[in-house]
């Protein structure tokens, strides 16, 4: 019975799962349309989470005082604060763990630092806060010659096209594509 030679020392062949037409853009900085679309998706997710929380809160109130139940009417600032917290945590966790939110995943984007690696927790938190405080800064990527938003310019981060699912850890030598 013939035995298979050991593959030790042999370079592992790389089979790219990315479609051929999308390979040239992998790793390039994304434009404003895809980034806005991703943020819209993320905003929808945040709204969904808030609605879920609102429904849970209402159900809890109904269970506690069914006779005197009324729909809660939180003030706008409370909603805004809750939405900011949810979105901030969502962005921070997503960027620091996988480098992408669900909207980024859907649009094939990834947030990386200046070395092309996944951003660290601190930078992810600062970037999330920056995005919440100055959301309009995203549209600077439409004007910027390097497709960078205000947040990217200040924090030296980038949003790139990345259709793969590989996670590039900070400090690891590698490429985001």
């Amino acid at each position: 019975m013939t035995t298979v030679p050991s593959g030790a020392g042999r370079a592992r062949p790389h089979i790219d799962p990315v479609p051929v037409e999308a390979r040239p853009i992998q790793g390039r900085r994304a434009g404003v349309v895809t980034r806005t679309a991703a943020n819209v998706v993320d905003f929808g997710i945040t709204v969904g989470v808030l609605l879920g929380g609102y429904a849970a809160w209402s159900a809890a109130r109904f269970l506690v005082e069914p006779a005197h139940f009324s729909w809660p009417a939180p003030p706008f600032l409370a909603i805004l604060a809750a939405g900011s917290v949810v979105m901030g945590l969502y962005f921070t966790c997503a960027w620091a763990t996988t480098g992408r939110t669900y909207g980024d995943h859907l649009l094939g984007l990834r947030v990386v630092n200046g070395r092309g690696e996944r951003v660290r927790w601190g930078l992810a938190a600062v970037r999330a806060a920056f995005c919440l405080v100055v959301p309009i800064g995203l549209f600077w990527s439409a004007v910027s010659r390097t497709n960078r938003s205000v947040q990217d310019t200040v924090l030296r981060t980038y949003v790139v096209y990345d259709w793969t699912t590989r996670i590039h850890r900070p400090g690891a030598v590698g490429t985001p594509t």
């Binding site: 479609p19 999308a22 349309v33 649009l107 094939g108 259709w163």
Partner: peptide, 18 residues
């Protein structure tokens, strides 16, 4: 990541729009 035709089309259209 890239199995869905819909996702692939959405991404490519996003790239073109960019």
């Amino acid at each position: 990541s890239v199995a869905s035709e819909a996702v692939r089309g959405l991404r490519m259209q996003g790239v073109d729009a960019d």
